[in-house]
Write a protein that binds this DNA or RNA. Structure first.
Length: 500
RNA sequence: GCCCCCAUCGUCUAGGGGACCAGGACGUGACCCUUUCAAGGUCAAGACCGGGGUUCGAAUCCCCGUGGGGGCACCA
């Protein structure tokens, strides 16, 4: 069911509330918005829904902005850069909502409510005791407008509620699920303006989306229960609705429910996170985050899985969105990270791993890392592994475990003899390159009747002094003749000690 | 409890009446390659929640169960 509205330039928005850090779900929603905007030549807008001053977290705004930047999702209008419809922070738009609330009051679609929280809570308890549906049951709905206005004028505390029809039903249309019908009697007289005068999401988001010309609304499935309210509001104003796209939810790895605070904390202990901010430090690539998350709820075909952001801009389609929830699978995240690392050019990989060396206190230059990058690119899962893989390149000398210098199935004396000959051949080399050293050493393996792994294992251990390391010849070439030979001679000495 | 959404391998998914003894990927196992570790390659095991319909024919459409998930705030 493709809609012609998907191919016209769209206006979409990512509208998080600055109450917490940017996480996977938000990143996916933001990306889908971004993709559709770029694909159609439309606009992607960032808007902060901060009408709840109690939950506001000043650090969250910056985190949201930083996270989106890191992911490479740029917006065309937003609180930090302005735009045609500024401001893009709802707390700064208090005055724009007022006339709309007034209009709803006048047209009879809303009413003033003077019930206190305590009264409401008591009613809810009663309803619960009677096993009834909990919903607004106060007297204010039936107050005459004159009486209500008089009480407001007298300074009485109040909220504004949407006057939900008691009868009938409403059918709303979600892009992924089709028509959904709700009985109005199951809907509540929701508060749309709080006693502090600020609208709640239900009003603020609808007004802003309309005013900002939003054509497609992407949001999580948790909004479906209040979806009919939102459409009621649109209809009360006589506005044209956007395309509503309710995305599936991300479930915890076990598949049992949404991520809770407790879950996210437990996750950090195992090096897993749903927060974009932490992913960079853990060595993940924004490309991998995007690729991974794009495929949770969307697919291109029956086999393509590797996508860059540009690919996604080109290939994304609302019609291939999947409505069922998805359990987060971090192993797949690692897989995508490896794929994207391998897709990086050496100099680019070097640039990405440089911060990890700085953090480890290893004075590695970009030039050196660029030469080393190809050796580790094929074996890395996360960027933070780079320093441990390559630490030996940046040491003046290394101290291999003596036992590691004795090859499998050989005794120390035999290992020493093999290494002596290997060193002799290497010393005789006219030039110190991978191409120059491999043939004579392979020949030596042959002559000694050894297996390649036996001889090269000794050399690798002498050079890198770590149980696993990048390939030998490439490593020696980068290390240079002097350093390599010095390390081999040191290994010779260690072996001699074992022989006597 | 009430309302709503969803339902294919352990996980992410393809499939939108015959092309399906259900395809891909992650993970798992085996093998190949191999100087370690990876990467890469090959192969293998592994799923249509159940029951009714509709139809010549259903993973695909409908209904009922069941299961999972979400929501029921002056939060978003």
């Amino acid at each position: 069911m493709p809609s012609p509205r998907d191919t016209q330039p769209v206006r979409v928005r990512f509208a998080p509330s600055p109450t917490g850090l940017l996480h996977l779900g938000g990143a996916r929603t933001a990306m889908y918005n971004f993709l559709l905007a770029r694909q159609t030549g439309g606009q992607f807008i960032l808007r902060f829904e901060d009408t709840d001053q109690k939950r506001y977290d000043p650090a969250a705004e910056q985190d949201l902005i930083d996270g989106l930047h890191w992911l490479g999702l740029r917006w065309d209008e937003g609180p930090d850069i302005g735009g045609q419809h500024a401001p893009y922070r709802q707390s700064e738009r208090k005055d724009v909502y007022k006339p709309f609330a007034a209009q709803l009051l006048e047209s009879g679609h809303a009413f003033y409510c003077f019930c206190t929280r305590a009264e409401l809570e008591a009613k809810r308890q009663e309803q619960k005791a009677r096993r009834e549906q909990a919903r607004y049951a106060g007297p204010c709905r039936d107050l005459s407008p004159e009486a209500a206005i008089a009480r407001v004028a007298a300074g009485e505390d109040h909220v504004i509620r949407f006057k939900m029809p008691k009868e009938g039903s409403i059918t709303v249309t979600d892009r992924l699920r089709g028509d959904i019908t709700f009985e109005n009697r199951n809907l509540d007289d929701y508060v749309i303006v709080k006693s502090d005068g600020l609208p709640v999401y239900h009003l603020a988001a609808m007004v802003d989306d309309h005013l900002m010309g939003i054509t497609h609304v992407f949001r999580g499935e948790e909004w479906i229960p209040t979806f009919p309210l939102h459409v009621h509001i649109y209809r009360a104003f006589g506005w044209q609705e956007p395309e509503w796209v309710h995305l599936s939810l991300f479930l915890k790895p076990s598949g049992k429910g949404k991520m809770s605070k407790r879950d996210t904390q437990a996750m950090q202990l195992t090096g897993q996170t749903i927060f974009i901010k932490d992913m960079q430090a853990l060595g993940y690539l924004p490309e991998a985050v995007l690729n991974w998350v794009a495929l949770m709820g969307w697919s291109y075909d029956d086999s393509t899985e590797f996508f860059t952001l540009d690919d996604l801009v080109q290939k994304f389609s609302l019609d291939r969105l999947n409505p069922s929830n998805a359990a987060i699978d971090f192993r797949k995240f690692d897989h995508f990270n490896g794929l994207h690392i391998r897709a990086l050019a050496p100099e680019e990989l070097a640039r990405r791993i440089l911060p990890f060396f700085e953090q480890a206190g290893i004075p590695a230059s970009l030039e050196a890392l660029t030469r080393i990058a190809p050796l580790i690119r094929e074996r890395m899962v996360t960027l933070d592994e780079a320093p441990e893989w390559t630490a030996f390149f940046f040491k003046d000398s290394v101290e291999p475990d003596p036992a590691s210098l004795v090859a499998k199935d050989l005794n120390p004396a035999q290992s020493l003899a093999a290494l002596q000959q290997a060193v002799a051949r290497l010393e005789a080399l006219p030039e110190w390159t991978h191409e120059a050293m491999e043939p004579p050493l392979r020949a030596l393996v042959e002559e000694l009747g050894l297996k390649a792994g036996q001889l090269f294992g000794i050399l690798r251990s002498a050079i890198a002094a770590q149980p696993v390391s990048p390939p030998l010849f490439e490593s020696m070439a980068i290390l240079g003749r002097e350093v390599s030979l010095a390390r081999l001679r040191r290994a010779l000495a260690l072996l001699e000690q074992q022989v006597k």
